[in-house]
Design a protein around this nucleic acid. Structure first.
Length: 466
RNA sequence: GGUCCCUUCGUCUAUCGGUUAGGACAGCUGGUUUUCAUCCUGCAAAGGGGGGUUCGAUUCCCCCAGGGACCGCCA
């Protein structure tokens, strides 16, 4: 048995979206599960639309989520000569022919097909015509001579046997009239030269597979295995496209989703393994298989992404979580100063308890991360004369407090509650606002302890609340 | 319109002929609680429709309906 080799072959004509990432993930997992290799091929033959920045974004995105390809990336545009020479071989062996139809002629055919509500399929005009009759003013394209008789069965690893009549596959163009190869030719030649054993790609490629199979056959190349995975749909039930919002990895990273959480979410979108929901990277490699891939398309569900992220926030090692937070804040928020590290790490256990995203943790930890307290207008309203008295008294008690923990703080707060004939909220809220600027956030004792005596004293002396 | 694919709770899914159709997320209860949460109880929630096959179908077959993908000298 040959070593499994898979590939992910995006075109760098736009940002990689989450559907593409899942395809890459499945390919990667499948190869790793089989102790094989995973390759990245950049299909940059559309020179107008291909951009280097997209290529960089693609590689960065894959790396972010934990996927690294084996070997150098394969740049399709550097192999164009190979593709052209295969086209010529096909021409020589009678498996392809020159088509001298003008653009106008083709457009006309398409128009007529539309009018008659028939599917357009090239009429194979030049399939049997002699080149002697060729017009001199038209540069020909090269078309593959598709089978007309019989049918082809695709033994799809996900969808099972799929059979279509050969005459529904048109004589597709393999070389444009400017001499450049088209997708189906290039992809096939590359897959063959890269020795791919398994082509795992979106369901939208299925018709291409039938075309490509014919090229393999004509070239007497060994056919790889194919697996067409169902597409990811938007909440509206349509194919996810580059135009959809929030579909690149950056969009998720920006709101504080962690790569492992998204990886786990994507893994379970369209694939399952018994009732298991949480998969470490190692587990996902161990258990991944093609049998577990469902046949129906699945919808993207943000609340699930969020809850997966929440799970990872609560369950991963706190040092690791802290590192994620530092990176996140540096890129998207305020950089965390190194002298805050200890305070934040100590507080992570309660900061993370009310967070679904790294952004939530940042918000909860803002009172530590930022040196200045930013008061919300509504929150400031809570600081009336009575509240100011409570705050002042609390400050005085704190100054003389030796045991700076919950046991030491509780009697102080309780004393104030009694004195001012109120409840916990009546005392806690003004102090919380004075310390953090907000009435929401971690528990009062957590805040006080995490800030430390010196900082408390400083903040409670602020003019705005005295 | 043609070809192909799909169809279990709102969502992701389990079930490989016999189950009170299971789990997870979301939702709703109740409890703990120091705001907001977390955490813990519980509840509600599904086999598109119609035919077969079978002692028995969510499961196998057929038809219909609905949804989707493709139909580029893009990839």
């Amino acid at each position: 048995m040959f070593k499994v080799a898979t590939r992910f072959a995006p075109s760098p004509t736009g940002a990689l979206h989450i559907g593409g990432v899942r395809t890459a993930l499945f390919n990667w997992l499948y190869s790793k599960n089989n102790k094989g290799t995973f390759h990245l091929r950049i299909e940059d033959t559309d020179k107008q639309r291909s951009k280097d920045e997209h290529k960089i974004q693609i590689i960065k995105s894959l790396k972010w989520i934990g996927i690294e390809h084996d070997g150098e990336e394969y740049i399709q545009s550097t192999k164009i000569n190979d593709h052209i020479s295969i086209a010529n071989e096909l021409l020589k062996s009678g498996n392809a022919y020159k088509c001298y139809c003008s653009n106008e002629e083709i457009e006309d055919q398409k128009k007529r097909a539309r009018q008659k509500k028939l599917p357009y399929i090239y009429n194979r005009k030049w399939r049997d015509l002699s080149e002697k009759d060729a017009p001199t003013d038209v540069k020909p394209v090269i078309r593959f001579k598709s089978k007309i008789e019989g049918s082809t069965i695709l033994k799809d690893l996900v969808q099972g046997d799929v059979e279509i009549d050969n005459n529904t596959i048109e004589d597709f163009i393999i070389l444009r009239n400017d001499g450049t190869p088209t997708y189906n030719l290039s992809a096939t030649v590359d897959d063959h030269q890269m020795n791919m054993t398994h082509i795992i790609r979106g369901d939208d490629h299925k018709i291409n597979t039938f075309k490509q199979m014919q090229i393999y056959l004509a070239m007497k190349w060994e056919l790889p295995q194919f697996a067409h995975i169902p597409l990811i749909h938007t909440i509206k039930g349509k194919k996810l496209s580059k135009r959809d919002n929030a579909s690149t990895l950056d969009d998720y990273s920006k709101i504080g989703i962690m790569p492992d959480a998204l990886r786990n979410y994507l893994l379970r979108l369209g694939w399952s393994y018994e009732d298991k929901e949480i998969f470490t990277l190692e587990e996902s490699i161990k258990h991944f298989n093609l049998e577990g891939i469902g046949k129906s398309p699945s919808k993207l569900d943000m609340s699930r992404i969020l809850s997966m992220n929440e799970y990872y926030i609560k369950n991963i090692d706190e040092n690791e979580l802290y590192n994620h937070l530092v990176q996140y804040c540096e890129i998207y928020k305020d950089k965390i100063k190194t002298e805050k590290e200890e305070k934040i790490k100590k507080s992570l256990s309660f900061l993370k308890n009310k967070a679904k995203t790294l952004e939530d943790i940042f918000n909860n930890a803002k009172y530590i991360i930022l040196d200045e307290v930013n008061f919300g207008d509504d929150d400031l309203k809570l600081i009336d004369e009575n509240a100011k008295k409570i705050i002042a008294e609390f400050k005085n008690e704190i100054i003389s407090l030796n045991t700076f923990n919950k046991e030491g703080l509780e009697p102080i707060v309780n004393g104030l509650i009694k004195k001012y004939d109120t409840n916990f909220k009546g005392v806690g809220q003004p102090i919380r606002v004075a310390l953090t600027g907000s009435k929401f956030g971690p528990g009062l004792y957590d805040i006080v302890i995490s800030l430390g005596k010196k900082e408390i004293e400083k903040r409670l002396s602020s003019k705005i609340i005295t």
